[in-house]
Nucleic acid binder design. Structure first.
Lengths: 342, 342
DNA sequence: TTGTATGCGTTATCAA
DNA sequence: TTGATAACGCATACAA
């Protein structure tokens, strides 16, 4: 008894309702092309059997899935959460479903995930940043899967993107910091290899130094992995220099919060003893104590616009267009001028 | 020119390599049942064409996908991130893929997502908490899709779970707080409807009060939505009572951090003026200032064990077994005895 | 408005 | 070791 009966198919429903499979299919996909009476019969059968369409079969027959994949480096911290949330909500509004995968910042895993999502029938893909093997873009193209890069905007890149200019944003923030009189700077960043956002931020910072007549080579740089602990460790290392920096930039808010915590543990006051600057403006930044001075990234707007762009290209066939969004400094409490020489 | 050529299929590869589709399929799934020579030919063809198998077709033919779905209430904050990460990693190690979906804490969306994942061929599902319509479990059963509940452990529930006892954990924490002399308590929690974890924590708190001879009815309860802002607002409300509480419990760390921030803004010292207690012990808790006293949840262990359990049942056919993991108080800096009456 | 028939890209059984 | 071939569950062009 209780033998596991096979899950019902379109055919079962058709039989139960006494109609053809075509009618059941229509009933599900174009309810208005079916008579009221028939529809009722079919719906009753569907509920009775607990039928639910088989996605794979449907995808195979229809050659589209109304599914868009999003591949992000990590779900561990909230960096991408807000943007994805907005992305998903907009998608949902248009009847699309989002599939997420994360890569732990590893290129090989990313490629694996891309293939996996494409194989799963994703109609389009959302990718973070431009940096990846060219063959991946070729693959995507031959598969006819549009891919939109986000979290970055590079007018020179071949791949269309909806994002912001990491370089310009960091440069602007750094200019403000330097204008305050800081001359001894440090940067705690994610590893730059394979991470164009991190690289752009680093270069943007150096550009600001250069523009202000400082030697960019003097910037103390530590590359680590995103994470509060790592931010703390890196901060300790940075401050142990013979001549410790008066302002420490961080590649993102997670690192900055780690730095902040470490500063506290080292008995350093922020921003009196040292300024700490983040990037991303995730919720964490406002909660940190003191509230973090950081670069505000338009997470929700970015997710929303990316979704619209993808849906549009899917429905119109018109190639994706890049969109630049602003990312600007937001000054809170962790930045002040360097200590005056008494 | 540049006409979008159709994506290559098994058939194309077979033709290109001069073998049958069966051989190509075997080559991909059981490489050792194919001669070296043939394998080389096939692989060459695959690379040449940029072939990648169609998941839907494969799922349909093989009747399994090596995919496990995870449906969580939210990705906005990091509550589930750590657990999911561990879940995914373990899955990956066994050749399984994780698909995530979030529900924004809405039952109707959850049901939609469950159906969507099942339709997508998820071999099994990971669900958060027990609370949901019975028909969903029926649906899952008729579909033959094993579902494992996590983030909760209720020995009385029908559904198997790998989690911790929210009631007992909160009760234990509350007992410690009460032992410090607190008699005027408040709780800021997520809405309890449809959220068994929140409810269990609330009841656990009341149980501790009762056990200590206090009237559980005196507990001031505010239900809100998870979020730092909401935590802050709720805290302000709680403290505006004629007789404000000396200890404020929070349903999770996110709310607690909001409360912490609000306390600062109101000029209240924590824990001198008021104690604040969180739940979950996400990374945020250690970063908060002061570091949060909270209930530690074994996120990674939970995710890991859940993955193992699901894989096991999938491969052995043996029904899922529930597993209880410990969740215990961790005392940091936001809890102290109530102010002595001067 | 409804039904028939075919194809979608794999896997798996059975022969060869 | 390899090749035919029959499912798998659904969508859709076409016919009725």
């Amino acid at each position: 008894m209780n033998s596991k009966r096979p899950t019902p198919t379109l055919n079962d429903v058709a039989t139960e309702a006494g109609v053809s499979t075509a009618t059941v299919s229509r009933c599900l996909n174009f309810p208005d092309r079916v008579s009221q009476r028939t529809r009722d019969k079919v719906m009753t059968a569907i509920n009775l059997l607990g039928y639910s369409p088989n996605f794979g079969a449907s995808a195979m027959a229809a050659r589209r899935t109304k599914t868009i994949g999003a591949i992000i480096p990590t779900m561990e911290n909230a960096i991408f959460a807000r943007g994805l949330q907005a992305f998903q909500e907009t998608l949902r509004g248009y009847g699309y479903t989002m599939l997420v995968a994360s890569t732990a910042y590893r290129a090989d895993i990313e490629e694996e995930q891309i293939r996996s999502l494409v194989a799963r029938g994703a109609d389009a893909l959302l990718l973070i940043g431009h940096d990846r093997d060219a063959q991946i873009y070729t693959f995507l193209e031959t598969q006819g899967v549009p891919a939109l890069v986000t979290w970055a905007f590079d007018p020179h890149a071949e791949q269309p993107s909806v994002g912001f200019d990491n370089h310009a944003a960091m440069r602007e923030m750094a200019a403000s910091v330097i204008a305050l009189g800081h001359e001894n700077l440090a940067l705690i960043t994610a590893r730059c290899a394979g991470n164009d956002r991190a690289r752009a931020r680093l270069v943007g910072l150096r550009a600001a130094m250069e523009a202000a007549g400082q030697d960019p080579e003097l910037l103390q740089v530590i590359q680590t992995t995103y994470g509060i602990e790592n931010g703390a460790a890196a901060f300790a290392e940075v401050m142990s220099a013979k001549k410790p920096p008066t302002a420490v930039f961080c590649g993102n808010d997670v690192l900055a919060v780690g730095a902040l915590r470490q500063a506290r543990e080292m008995g350093l006051s922020v921003p009196e003893d040292v300024s700490i600057i983040g990037f991303d403006d995730i919720e964490l930044a406002q909660v940190a104590y003191p509230p973090l001075t950081t670069v505000h990234v338009p997470h929700a707007e970015m997710g929303h616009r990316a979704a619209l762009a993808l849906i549009d290209t899917l429905q119109s066939g018109i190639p994706l267009q890049s969109i630049a969004l602003p990312a600007t400094p937001v000054f809170r409490k962790t930045l002040a001028g360097p200590k005056a020489v008494k």
